[in-house]
């Protein structure tokens, strides 16, 4: 089965769902009208339920967390209920087998009911047991990945207020700080000896990155470096729109300079193996490597415009 196409993924997902449901409805119709095979409503409903579960569990990669699938599955169940019970005819048809089992007028239904009467309480108690039994798995962490930063950070004796500081290397041709210089030069060749200062700094940042950072953060900056899977959670993936892209440059500066040990109280539990790089890099080097990371991922740093 083909995977998800980069850049089209959300729409592709919706389109696939549409396709599945269209095939389902069309198939049911053809079976019913043309071939005279009517699939009972209950069976159809069960099919839709399982199909939804299957789709979200196995089709989507990387796998979705259980909590999200739970929301989706509840919504799918609501939808199934709305669909089967929207017209009286369908609803009666849907209920018929259930009521037949409850009434147990034939030997078959009697047996089904008997088995269900044993299986249902057992599975309920089983679920309760599983739910309440002390488990050895790691507990769910509502970990704040990007905790609230301090107002200012002191690096190498100098104080950087995070709200106001700026990268000294994000400068345009005139030497002025510019939010647009990255966009303008994102396709430039960093090895061009005639490149503007900005590109020279990007290149130097890249050198620093590959000497220090790529072992964990990966040579594609995707958090899958050589040592990445020794850590849990794995290092930040900069190509993910949820990391660099939604942070201010100064926030990244703080995190690079202070590393895991510098995380504040809200960052509990401090599950980060990031070293405090201020002990190994100069302030300039930190700014440069951040410059490179943004340039490479093509994301602009966040600024405090309107949300």
């Amino acid at each position: 089965m083909p995977g998800f196409i980069d850049g089209m993924m959300p729409i592709q997902l919706l389109a696939e769902l549409l396709l599945i449901i269209a095939i389902f409805i069309l198939g049911a119709m053809i079976l019913d009208k043309k071939m005279g095979i009517h699939i009972p409503m209950l069976l159809q409903a069960v099919f839709v339920f399982i199909a939804g579960w299957w789709y979200y569990k196995y089709r989507i990669d990387p796998p979705l967390p259980f909590s999200v699938r739970a929301i989706y599955q509840v919504m799918i169940s609501v939808g199934i209920f709305m669909w089967v019970s929207s017209a009286e005819k369908g609803w009666i048809e849907f209920k018929r087998p259930i009521i037949a089992v409850l009434d147990a007028k034939t030997p078959l239904t009697w047996w089904v009911r008997a088995v269900l009467l044993v299986v249902l309480p057992l599975s309920a108690s089983g679920m309760t047991y599983i739910n309440l039994a002390p488990s050895l798995s790691e507990p769910i962490e509502l970990r704040t990945v990007h905790p609230a930063p301090p107002a200012a950070v002191k690096v190498h004796g100098k104080k950087f207020p995070l709200q106001t500081s700026e990268s000294p290397f994000r400068i345009d041709e005139n030497g002025e700080y510019s939010d647009h210089v990255q966009d303008a030069h994102v396709m430039d060749n960093p090895f061009d000896p005639d490149g503007i200062d900005y590109m020279q700094n990007v290149k130097e940042g890249g050198e620093i990155f590959f000497q220090n950072c790529h072992f964990c953060h990966g040579d594609n900056l995707n958090g899958r470096g050589l040592y990445a899977f020794a850590f849990n959670p794995i290092p930040a993936n900069f190509t993910d729109p949820g990391t660099l892209a939604q942070l201010q440059e100064t926030f990244v500066f703080w995190r690079v300079a202070k590393g895991g040990p510098g995380l504040p109280r809200e960052g509990f539990p401090w599950a980060s193996a990031m070293p405090p790089w201020e002990q190994h890099l100069t302030t300039e080097e930190i700014w440069k490597v951040i410059l490179f990371e943004y340039w490479h991922t093509k994301y602009p740093p966040r600024t405090w415009g309107e949300e």
Partner: peptide
């Protein structure tokens, strides 16, 4: 999203 560390790892972010 609410998730366990294992799920976080599988999701990769």
């Amino acid at each position: 999203m609410v998730m366990t560390p294992t799920e976080l790892k599988e999701m990769g972010g």
